[in-house]
Design a protein around this nucleic acid. Structure first.
Lengths: 156, 156
DNA sequence: TAATTTCCGAGTAAATTACTTGGTAATGAG
DNA sequence: CTCATTACCAAGTAATTTACTCGGAAATTA
């Protein structure tokens, strides 16, 4: 699994789309404005997302983008894989001259962990996040939308 | 959370260290040889790991690196944060002019997800991986160390 | 003393990121 | 029908990051 800023842009944009796309399509210009991502970078990202059928574009005035399928059927892993494309990290994929000693054990463990991270992200859907947001919005006054995360605690 | 190839190198190297460092220190030259990472790149990574006290270096002949603490006290998140350094993704950290509408909700949701990914990796220790490897090694014939992962299944 | 190893900093090619520019194609509003 | 609007597309590029090379210095052991 690879989680770069590019993947973040894609997830953030998809989240924006899921939240704002309930009534009619959302234009990339809106997402660009909302999220502070350049329009043509969004175009690139959405070209990748479209090719994986995670979004569907409608041209012309009043057009924009819809989710390609239900938000519950789109996982975070789907989104990240669409734009970041999975690259094999270890060169030995179990087959080469790397099959003895602790070297390949390391690689095997890495692959296991990597798959576990993937599964984790594959089990979180856009729909999950949207529902989580709906709960937050009702339990909090809308103006005091404070992000409560101890940033420093995770640096150590 | 950010999971780049740099972080992978670090995790892989630390795993190698945990596996081979049971008797005496491990040199970077060995890890370089084992994992196919250039020596001076390892030096850079280990400088970061050392500054976070995840490893401890011993100079001179017979020297090398030890884990800085018990493998059970080193999480994958620790390792990745040490080399990749946490960068705030959304510019609005809850305080700026981004606190109305669905824009900040998107950011807040992203931050939540990001924290969740972090927690996930914070709860997997090097020790966990080593124990998992020990189990694998005993249940499998050593030569048939096949990495069993359906790579294509996760692309879709 | 000499070999070994960490430790350190400067420099760099290659890749990736994020963006700009300049279009074309489809489509709805007037 | 025309035009504004939108997706769609491709080439180029500055900035950043990755992964590495080089050339050392400092500590430590044989």
């Amino acid at each position: 699994m690879r989680l770069s800023t590019k993947g973040r842009y894609a997830v953030t944009a998809m989240l924006d789309l899921a939240l704002n796309g309930v009534k009619g399509p959302v234009t990339l210009a809106e997402i660009s404005e909302n999220q502070g991502i350049s329009l043509s970078y969004l175009e690139q990202l959405f070209a990748a997302l479209r090719s994986k059928e995670l979004v569907r574009g409608v041209r012309g005035p009043g057009g924009g983008y819809y989710l390609g399928k239900s938000a519950d059927d789109i996982s975070i892993a789907n989104i990240i894989c669409a734009v970041d494309e999975w690259v094999e990290f270890t060169r030995c994929g179990g087959r080469q001259n790397c099959s003895r000693g602790s070297r390949c054990l390391t690689h095997s463990l890495w692959d296991d962990l990597s798959a576990e991270i993937f599964d984790f992200l594959a089990n979180i859907s856009l729909g999950d996040l949207v529902r989580r947001g709906a709960k937050e919005a009702e339990s909090k006054p809308p103006a005091l939308n404070v992000v409560a995360n101890g940033e420093d605690s995770r640096a150590a």
